[in-house]
Design a protein around this nucleic acid. Structure first.
Lengths: 283, 283
DNA sequence: ATCACTTACGGGTGACGTAAAAATC
DNA sequence: GATTTTTACGTCACCCGTAAGTGAT
């Protein structure tokens, strides 16, 4: 069998053209490379070089061998990557989602079910999520509708209802509910990490300006300092409570209520059985 | 980079199930294997085994790694085979043909043009030859008609005219030529290595029996010992001369004259330029 | 003289074997 | 007891570097 170092050295010779250049690239001395190439020729039982007195060139055999070697080394790198990725994926639970809402509640549940795995969450577009799930980048993804795809298992994981949060002296403050169009044109504060909601509200309220805040902290600060309306959902209300200085007005449009669904590869469904059973009990 | 011996050992462990069994298969001691697998885990930065006190099992990482390793080792074997095959093909000139006639004259020419290559000839059917040329099994093939295939370069390499050879007291002995049907029904001696001619004469003379002889030597012997008619061609006549005890009657049917064509891969055409130029001068 | 390669010789890493211990059956 | 894995230690192979030599530019 051919040792890996011989393949690497052969590739370097192909890339560099001469033994001395290759030896430099490899941080080796020329004599060492010479011996390696001779050994390789011995092992293969084939001449790999056209030898002049002080010049060697890869011949046809040598070029083929070097191409093969390059391919093998790539495969070896690929093996390392794949094994490491598999190991990582067994230690972490990567969940991709289009909207952060449902994970606020579900994340602690996931942690308690899989205490020895670290939960990693990412906010992405649906296309990225589906591709990522297929490629093993995520173990699960959360979307706001079902998929036809046979490759994925799908379980419902709750809904999220959007609210306007307005000062008590706002014209809508007394109403229990309203529509997007009722507020269309008014400026609203909004966090930047809201995933899918961003698109929903921009489409439903094309006349409004949305003052994006970097992170929840900045948003909370400007909420205290201003009287601008902003958004909440039933999930954020359950998690953080209501702001007593504001009124909460539910948005009655269909688009203001998202249904969420959790997907994994169908072959992984049994791995996460406990999780999906917990979802079933809950929703 | 991962040394090849580690991949081999990992594969053996996958195949054998236990370290001790694998060590036996590899003609190694168990401690050595243990260290190798530990080193491999180190290199990958990943655990490959579920370890009990006196038992190890490949885990999911290990199984994936072993599968990859097996694949890489296969590729390495493949590399060795391919390089050796290329080397062989550069030292030999394999010519496949449907009929041995033209090579009787052309083989010495080929040898003199390529003195450092050994000329290997094979008799096969057209389908085998075309496939073999495509796969690199032959550098050239000789067929009895042109091909449409764009992948091949084609050069004419002469004709071969078939004769009946009959005793002087045969009813056709005085004629300069005759047809297949004139002899249809008579038994004839025939060598078994005549390639395409075999089919030609059987189709043209369905009533005749052909007494196949294994090799030219056996045929020559039985020719001397019997008065049965047999076949010759202009090429065999030029090569071996005429048998003075027999009369030679040319066969006038179109099928009794073959036109031969020499093919190589179009990309190899320049390699064999000298050869094709010699053919052009000759025919 | 410089460059490119080869041959010859010595050194150090590391892969292997032997020996022994620990743990399970 | 036998079997399997692991640890400890010594040995030898072999891969590399240094030095020297050859031939070409």
């Amino acid at each position: 069998m051919i040792d890996t170092y011989l393949l690497e050295q052969l590739c370097a010779v192909l890339d560099c053209g001469t033994l001395s250049a290759a030896s430099e690239k490899l941080h080796l001395t020329q004599p060492s490379l010479t011996r390696s190439m001779q050994k390789l020729e011995d092992l293969l039982g084939v001449e790999l070089f056209d030898r002049a007195k002080n010049r060697v060139h890869l011949n046809e055999n040598g070029r083929l061998a070097a191409e093969c070697a390059k391919h093998i080394l790539m495969e070896e790198q690929d093996m390392i990557s794949r094994v490491r990725a598999l190991d990582r994926s067994s230690r972490t639970l990567a969940v991709g989602m289009i909207s952060p809402g449902p994970m606020m509640e579900l994340s602690p549940l996931l942690s308690s079910l899989y205490p020895d795995r670290t939960i990693a969450t990412e906010l992405r577009t649906e296309e990225e999520l589906v591709q990522g799930l297929r490629q093993g980048m995520y173990q699960m993804i959360l979307l706001n509708h079902r998929l036809e795809d046979e490759a994925f298992a799908c379980h419902s994981c709750g809904t999220e209802q959007l609210y306007f949060v307005v000062p008590h002296d706002h014209r809508l403050a007394d109403q229990a509910q309203c529509t997007f169009s009722d507020m269309n044109g008014e400026s609203l504060l909004m966090a930047d990490q809201v995933g899918y909601w961003d698109r929903i509200v921009r489409e439903a309220m094309p006349q409004s300006h949305f003052l994006l805040q970097n992170g929840i902290g900045a948003l909370a600060e400007i909420i205290r300092a201003s009287s601008l309306p902003y958004f909440a959902t039933d999930l954020t209300i359950r998690l953080h409570g209501r702001n007593p200085e504001r009124a909460y007005v539910a948005i009655s449009d269909d688009a203001a209520t998202e249904h969420f669904y959790c997907f994994c590869k169908r072959e992984d469904e049994k791995k996460y059985l406990a999780w999906f059973q917990a979802l079933e009990r809950r929703f």
